[in-house]
């Protein structure tokens, strides 16, 4: 892993309203095969992607949220949620369908600065 790059996927968009969240997740799953140091950041409306209990039958769009749970099987275990974004949306850690690390804005900014490649969706 010594020559692995630090990849961060920055998710700032809500699911379903646009396709970015789903297609971002597809890149994340592929990236797992490349043995890089992958982390996911959820900011702004991106935190809604992780909300438990998504029921999409009524909108006839596939519910892709279970795939976040599968990330662990791909050794993608670094999921970071920005605290201010989470709180501004009336959410808390218990609302998420996976375990995440909640970071303050300042901590998130510092983590971003440590990355080699940042892909934003």
């Amino acid at each position: 892993m010594s020559d692995a790059k630090k990849f961060m996927f920055v998710n700032r968009k809500a699911p379903y309203g646009t396709i970015y969240a789903l297609e971002s997740l597809e890149v994340v799953l592929i990236s797992a095969a490349f043995d890089q140091d992958v982390s996911l950041a959820f900011l702004d409306d991106g935190v809604y992607q992780l909300k438990k209990g998504q029921q999409t039958k009524g909108i006839e769009i596939k519910n892709f949220s279970p795939a976040y749970r599968a990330l662990e099987d791909y050794d993608v275990e670094k999921l970071y949620v920005e605290k201010e974004a989470m709180e501004a949306r009336g959410l808390s850690e218990e609302d998420f369908l996976v375990n995440v690390t909640v970071l303050s804005r300042a901590e998130m900014g510092k983590l971003m600065d440590e990355q080699d490649v940042v892909l934003s969706f």
Partner: peptide, 11 residues
């Protein structure tokens, strides 16, 4: 081609 080409570009 596949999404791997995007990750490869990052690398």
């Amino acid at each position: 081609s596949g999404l791997g080409q995007l990750v490869e570009a990052g690398i």
